[in-house]
Structure formats: C-alpha cells, structure tokens
Design a protein around this nucleic acid. Structure first.
Length: 205
DNA sequence: TGCCAGGCCCTCTTTAGGGCCTT
C-alpha cells in the first residue's frame, strides 16, 4: 500500500514570514485510485482576512471567528497525516505554512513534499497552463466542488496525483510509482525526463 | 479591507529578467 497525504491550505496571504496564517486546511489520504479518508477544518487565524482573499476563497472573518484555533487544528492535521508522504499543488507554498505552524506547536518533522505543479509541468507540457483548475479540465478529472476551498482543492489534487501516476506508469511501463521516483521526476528538467527515470530505475536515485 | 514571497522555468540567458503558481 502506498498512501499519500494530499494537503491544501487556505490562508490570509502568501507568506507566513509577513504574518499570513492559515484559515482552512484539508488532507486527503489516497491509496492508488482510492480515497481512503479526509480531514478538513476551518481555523481562527487570529489576524484579519484581507477583503480580496475573502472574495477569492469565500472564507470570511465571520466564518473563522468561532472556528478552533490554528494550533488545535494543526495538531489534529499532523496526527491525521502521520508518517505518510505528502503532496500539494505548488508544494513550496503549502510546505511554508505546514512547517511554520508545526514549528509553533513544536510538532515539526522533516518531510519531503512531492509537488503536483512541478510534476504536471514535466508530464503535461501541452496544457494551456498548470493551474489546478485548468489541469482538472484538461485531464478530465472529477469535479470536486468550489475551487479555493481546501477540501475541494485537496481532492482535485489527489485525482491529479492519480492521473500523474497513471501517466508515468504508462509512459515508462512501470507497475508502480514510488515517492522517490516522483521526487526525482519533479527535480529534473522535463527535457531530461526519460534519462532521469532510467537513472532512477537503475540506481534508485 | 492596504503593503509584504519565493522557487521554478524559459529565453532575446548564464555578470538577468520576467512569467508562472499558490492565497
């Protein structure tokens, strides 16, 4: 069994270093093509949500006022993820918030995130762009709900991961795709994709 | 209802600049 924890944050801004904090998180556990479980919660960020972000996500200050504290939700989310490998769409963004908030509650552990944005750029260069919504349409993935809500985006990303794995298996004749292979592919230039996969299969690197 | 990022990729590049993507 190779279970992935696919996560998505909604936040008050783009950078925790400038005071942005999460307003919602969702985690989807997916094994192959089967969603095993879901975790989702709003949280009270303790700082105002800018108007344009309220418009983008639909998450208002009123909605998070009575939500649990960030610390409480992040502890639950961390327990839910456990030791599973993690993936997000544009993982550099979600990883910043994941690391920052878990460091606050002294629950941080070293985790290597796979990134469906980088992988999609390698594997589907013909796509109009590599926004999550565009990839869902282009690849005919299941509709999951309103974009820019954590659970809908995490589920869409989980289906994208499934499609990415299918593409790798089909293109390279593999029966399974490991976390290490995903990391290797996302870390290489798309023009060197075949060489990267061949090297990984031969050496594991 | 402000402002604030940063890693990756491409190219008119590499002594750089700008677009993409996340909220």
């Amino acid at each position: 069994m190779s279970v992935y924890a696919v996560i998505d944050f909604e936040t008050t801004g783009l950078s925790p270093e400038y005071g942005a904090r999460p307003t919602e998180i969702a985690v989807v556990l997916i094994d192959g093509d089967r969603i095993l479980d879901r975790y989702q919660s709003l949280m009270n960020p303790g700082v105002p949500i800018p108007y344009d972000i309220q418009t983008l996500t639909g998450i208002t200050n009123a909605m998070v006022r009575s939500a649990p504290k960030v610390e409480t939700v992040m502890a639950e989310a961390s327990d839910f993820v456990g030791d599973h490998p993690m993936l997000a769409h544009n993982a550099a963004f979600d990883r910043k918030f994941w690391d920052t908030e878990l460091q606050r509650i002294k629950r941080w552990q070293q985790k290597e995130f796979a990134c469906s944005l980088l992988l999609a750029r390698r594997l589907f260069p013909q796509a109009l762009n590599h926004k999550l919504a565009t990839l869902v349409r282009t690849l005919h993935l299941p509709a999951t709900g309103r974009y820019h809500r954590a659970l809908a985006d995490a589920e869409a990303t989980a289906y994208l991961l499934q499609r990415i794995k299918q593409e790798i298996q089909h293109r390279f004749g593999l029966s399974a795709v490991s976390h290490e292979l995903l990391i290797a592919i996302q870390s290489t230039n798309r023009n060197k994709l075949e060489a990267c996969v061949e090297r990984h299969l031969n050496t594991g690197k």
